[in-house]
């Protein structure tokens, strides 16, 4: 059940949490984003694929509010949070203070603790970040993002630095948290399989434009078959030429990754 590929992101019916119209961004003579249209509905899980230098990072920085947009038509929610590839925890603050960074009001520690329990790290609440493993640090980063109850959660290749096993557990955790909190998610990734396994919608960004868009309506965990077809198409969009031989091996690899363990917890 794949929608036809079209070249402008569809505008959903409900009021979107993110909306960019004809967005441009350039550094000097170098145009990084060139007339991009993007709309993300509340609670939607969008994956953004693209080659290095295709504008993914620039787009993410714009959505994170880290770059000024110079009066362009950009709508981003006030409550947003980012999980970066490197967890970016402040090493001089204990885990719970990292989670509570910038939070105000009473019961901050309790809120941080609740978020840490959600990611299964309640027992590391008073640990120093440098004593955490990569997976643990990334879970703290997730807790730090979720404690703010963001309308928009930006994931910048959050699992790229993790080993395969930890990554699978993190996928399950992210889905679980997404189902509970229902933020709109934009996940930047290099990993086509990851995108197919997690997202409702996959965008391919190249040369500052969205060159492909795929909607996936098949339930997560049952995407083995459509995943194979989709994977091949997406790799094609990414400019990755595949001979039939490669497709076979790619499908083998894909099949072992795609069936997603429903309800698995990290």
């Amino acid at each position: 059940m794949l929608a036809e590929t079209n070249f402008t992101a569809a505008f959903p019916v409900s009021e979107p949490v993110v909306r960019l119209r004809d967005f441009h961004r350039s550094f000097g003579a170098n145009t990084v984003i060139d007339g991009l249209n993007l709309s993300i509905a509340p609670g939607e899980f969008v994956a953004l694929l693209g080659r290095s230098g295709g504008g993914k990072t620039t787009l993410l920085r714009t959505l994170a509010g880290l770059d000024s947009v110079g009066g362009q038509d950009v709508l981003i929610p006030n409550s947003r949070a980012v999980v970066f590839q490197d967890a970016r925890l402040l090493p001089w603050k204990k885990v719970w203070r990292n989670v509570a960074l910038g939070l105000k009001g009473p019961g901050v520690r309790e809120r941080a603790e609740a978020a840490l329990n959600e990611v299964g790290l309640g027992h590391r609440i008073d640990a120093w970040p440098l004593t955490l493993s990569g997976g643990e640090a990334q879970r703290v980063a997730l807790a730090r993002a979720l404690v703010r109850e963001p309308k928009l959660l930006l994931l910048d290749e959050p699992f790229a630095a993790l080993d395969a096993l930890t990554r699978i557990k993190m996928h399950a955790l992210v889905l679980e948290l997404w189902r509970v909190h229902r933020p709109a998610i934009l996940m930047v990734t290099h990993d086509v399989d990851e995108a197919v396994a997690l997202a409702d919608r996959i965008l391919v960004l190249d040369a500052g434009r969205i060159v492909a868009e795929e909607h996936i309506t098949v339930q997560r965990g049952e995407r083995g078959d459509v995943g194979r077809v989709l994977r091949q198409r997406l790799l094609g969009h990414l400019g990755c030429e595949i001979t039939s031989e490669h497709v076979l091996s790619a499908v083998d690899v894909g099949a072992s990754i795609l069936p997603f363990p429903q309800g698995a917890s990290a």
Binding site: L66, R80, A81, V82, L90, L101, G102, R144, L154
Partner: peptide, 18 residues
């Protein structure tokens, strides 16, 4: 780290302090 903190909406003074 500075950008990470800014992405959570910390003000300039808070970024300096934290």
């Amino acid at each position: 780290l500075i950008e990470g903190a800014r992405s959570f909406g910390l003000s300039r003074a808070e970024v300096i302090w934290h």
